[in-house]
Design a protein around this nucleic acid. Structure first.
Lengths: 225, 225
DNA sequence: AAAGGTATGTTGGAATTCCAACAAAGGAGA
DNA sequence: TCTCCTTTGTTGGAATTCCAACATACCTTT
């Protein structure tokens, strides 16, 4: 278990927790480490949603089947990544998704109730763990909300401007660098890359923004005042 | 404070907590009840994001200003509703939004750290409170994810089908009733109401679905097998 | 039953987006 | 430096969506 300390320390769930604390904690939580052969399920839709998973090695793909059984990939989780935490914390009885090992993988399962309830020994790190869990889910909440705000705009131009103004506000400056290339930005906004590129050009021509690569500047609108 | 028991008991944060427990808890948490005149701010952007708010009476509007100062309404919170919880839990130092009382309102503020940390008296209801808080945010997470899954589809038809298949799966039946009228559904999916109505008609004509009002049935696709 | 109002369905042209194909601009490696 | 490959920008026609206007259905009130 100690072999995975480095990976675990990168997991948001264990932020600010040292190795000795972590080993004690894992014992206390009765965390279970399981190896899963490539292509095998980590869990299946309908399984009880009791556990959060941490990928220790390999890669795990979370997939969802619609009513007809058409499968779509939701996420791919790398070592250090957490998964299924929202389902467990939301109080779902069963999982609405499946997870499959893309490579031979090692996964740490933690009982969500055990994380929340705290142990009889009043282990002092439970509150930290809960804090981390809550913080992670709340942050994801904010990123999802931001994305929806962009995607809700009607036109590509509006989606872009909402995104860029949000970045400017977040980074506290009219000049900033975005963490996406054009294709990733288009995917994020839910539009066509080429159409988006064209729109960026138009925004530049119209004097609304300036940009070069992943660098942008939003220009003060001429109020005419 | 007891006057608000009925409202508080409807708040997701206090689910499963009885009145005597609640009064003890509020004392323990040092909850502060404040009256806010109509039109006055409940809090302003930039204020420390330490508190979660519960509307006890009136109505509170959460608004966001973009980089240029254009204001947009994010939510309107009614009595029993929780707000600012994601910001406080995500660990933001300052609030990225403002809140304004639409009517003369009463708001209960709770220190988020105090909720999470637990009190020295080992008040037995803290864990329930944390559980409720986490569960609420996790559930919101799932609803946001669902919405994004629909909105990410390219065409109105695909958005509709993803939504309907998701409903069928959630409700465990090919027949179900949706909790939206046409306008609300269009807003949810981010499309035009009239275009969506037309698309529903087409889907019916194509034998993909059957519907009447808020009742829908998704029909098994003819696999040709 | 009539009238008014609201929600829903339908339609046609304007506007926008998608799509595919290609051009241009870098970057990495030989 | 040259070549190959990836990323980004540009363009035109096809497809889709928006928008506004109107028709129809349903519900409530009188």
């Amino acid at each position: 278990m100690e072999a995975y300390f480095e990976i675990l320390s990168q997991c948001s769930l264990f932020a600010g927790i040292t190795q000795p604390e972590m080993t004690e904690m894992l014992r206390c939580l009765e965390g279970k480490i399981t190896g899963i052969p490539k292509g095998n399920p980590v869990f299946l839709e309908g399984d009880p949603a009791r556990f959060v998973g941490v990928v220790l090695s390999g890669a795990v793909q979370v997939v969802r089947d619609d009513y007809y059984g058409n499968r779509s990939v939701l996420t791919v989780v790398s070592p250090g990544g957490l998964f299924a935490e929202a389902f467990a914390c939301a109080g779902l009885e069963t999982l609405p998704v499946s997870a499959i090992a893309l490579q031979p993988s090692t996964v740490l399962f933690l009982d969500c109730q055990r994380i929340l309830t705290g142990c009889s020994q009043a282990c002092p790190f439970h509150s930290r763990l809960v804090h981390n869990l809550l913080q992670g889910i709340a942050q994801k909440n904010l990123t999802l909300t931001r994305k929806i705000r962009c995607m809700s705009q009607k036109t590509t131009r509006e989606k872009l401007m909402v995104f860029l103004l949000d970045q400017a506000k977040q980074q506290g400056s009219a000049e900033f660098v975005i963490p996406y290339d054009r294709q990733a930005l288009a995917d994020y906004l839910g539009v066509e890359r080429s159409a988006m590129s064209a729109e960026i050009s138009k925004l530049k021509k119209d004097g609304q923004i300036d940009s070069s690569g992943s660098w942008f500047r939003v220009l003060s609108p001429d109020t005419g005042a």
